[in-house]
């Protein structure tokens, strides 16, 4: 990591993080530092623990060993800390997870009204602003079920942004989308990255990774195998496993 980034402050820090599902050791000694404004792309074969890792950052999964500090707050058993972290961290899921019983606008204003205690009017203004940003201002009164997958994912991104988070986590945001909709979601993510949002993305979109990432992280079987800037990562991967993985997903 360059000195300039270290100066601007560390937003996410994982130190020697371990996690087990029963007897299965799913995360092994994970160390990761993400500076303010830095974009990290995590890739790896399925079952490598990348989703579990990213879900530990907002405590959707609990780590059993090690230390996780997010936006200066340590994630431990203290529920206040967990709530504080979740307020600062937005998350976008593979399956969108929009609330189907609420309109798009209600999906966007729910958390600002109930968690941030914003007045409804202000929350709606913010919501409309972000709908504009993700390029679907005219869908505010529809229900999620009436939108296409790409539109739903963009609403999900807007929903997270309405909380004005410091950090955005993306857990395979385009994996459930039809091919022709992937670009519209990636475009939104790229513009978000260009504005300096701190981002951690689990994705296999290597084109996106090349354009946006400051740092590539490759995981396999619960370990971080390789960590490098994208140029080095794609041009000369150091590990055999990384090379094998890259050849599989880029070959065709």
């Amino acid at each position: 990591m360059s000195d300039a980034k270290a100066d601007s402050g560390t937003m996410i820090e994982l130190q020697a993080v371990h996690k087990w599902y029963g007897d299965f050791h799913v995360l092994k000694d994970i160390n990761l530092q993400v500076g303010k404004g830095e974009k990290v792309v995590v890739c790896g074969p399925s079952g490598s623990g990348k989703s579990t890792m990213i879900r530990c950052i907002n405590r959707l999964e609990e780590h059993q060993q090690g230390r996780i500090v997010v936006a200066g707050i340590e994630l431990n058993a203290d529920l206040k800390n967990i709530d504080a972290v979740r307020r600062e961290v937005g998350m976008v899921f593979q399956q969108f997870n929009l609330f189907p019983h609420l309109t798009v606008l209600q999906n966007l204003t729910l958390a600002p009204i109930w968690v941030r205690k914003l007045p409804k009017k202000e929350a709606e203004e913010t919501a409309r602003y972000y709908l504009e940003r993700v390029r679907i201002p005219d869908q505010a009164d529809k229900y999620p079920g009436q939108l296409s997958g790409g539109q739903q994912q963009r609403v999900a991104i807007a929903r997270s942004l309405c909380m004005k988070p410091e950090i955005m986590l993306f857990d395979e945001p385009t994996s459930a989308l039809d091919p022709e909709m992937i670009k519209e979601v990636l475009d939104v993510m790229v513009s978000l990255a260009e504005e300096g949002m701190t981002m951690v993305c689990v994705t296999h979109e290597m084109g996106f990774a090349r354009t946006v990432a400051d740092m590539m992280v490759f995981m396999d079987r619960g370990e971080v195998i390789e960590r490098a800037p994208p140029k080095d990562f794609f041009a000369n991967p150091k590990s055999d496993r990384t090379r094998a993985f890259l050849s599989q997903i880029i070959a065709h």
Binding site: N58, L60, D83, R86, R87, V89, G90, M91, F93, Q95, N97, L98, F99, P100, H101, L110, A111, W114, V115, R159, S160, M163
Partner: peptide, 27 residues
Amino acid sequence: IPRGQIEAADALGLSYFQRTRLIVLPQ
């Protein structure tokens, strides 16, 4: 209720009661 609904509510910072009242029970 799909697990993802609860995760989305948690990720947005809703408390247990908010999540139950606003997301889980209505559905």
